[in-house]
């Protein structure tokens, strides 16, 4: 478990001291990416802690599906002048909330 905060801190250091071109993506897509990461990390954590093996594939698939579907919804919304921003983020937020729910003491 301790490895996760360590990796987050390493990532933060990299992000802070190197110019990673985040500004190429719009703010909506950044929010989507952030939420998709939270969802996939918590999903992976649940699987890892429940003792399941071979979790890399499912985590990656969940991340990709979240990004692709959410990205498509936002893109479609922008093209059709409809604000579908929250619609795109909602499933990921629900997924993240359900994953976190599994950590609650039973």
């Amino acid at each position: 478990m301790w490895a996760i905060p360590v990796m987050v801190i390493i990532g933060f250091t990299i992000g802070y001291f190197f110019n990673i071109p985040f500004n190429l993506a719009g703010s909506k897509y950044l929010a989507l990416g952030f939420l998709a990461l939270l969802d996939s990390i918590s999903y992976g954590l649940v699987r890892d802690l429940s003792g399941q093996k071979g979790n890399n594939g499912p985590i990656l698939i969940r991340l990709i599906i979240g990004l692709v579907l959410g990205g498509f919804i936002i893109f479609f919304g922008e093209k059709s002048q409809t604000d579908l921003y929250l619609v795109a983020l909602f499933p990921l937020a629900v997924g993240f909330a359900l994953n976190m729910y599994k950590f609650l003491p039973k």
């Binding site: 490895a3 996760i4 990796m7 987050v8 801190i9 390493i10 990532g11 933060f12 250091t13 990299i14 992000g15 802070y16 990673i20 985040f22 950044l30 990416g33 952030f34 990461l37 939270l38 996939s40 990390i41 992976g44 985590i59 991340l63």
Partner: peptide, 10 residues
């Protein structure tokens, strides 16, 4: 993904 999350947090 935790690493990527850290990068995004910056």
């Amino acid at each position: 993904l935790s690493l990527a999350l850290g990068i995004m947090l910056a």
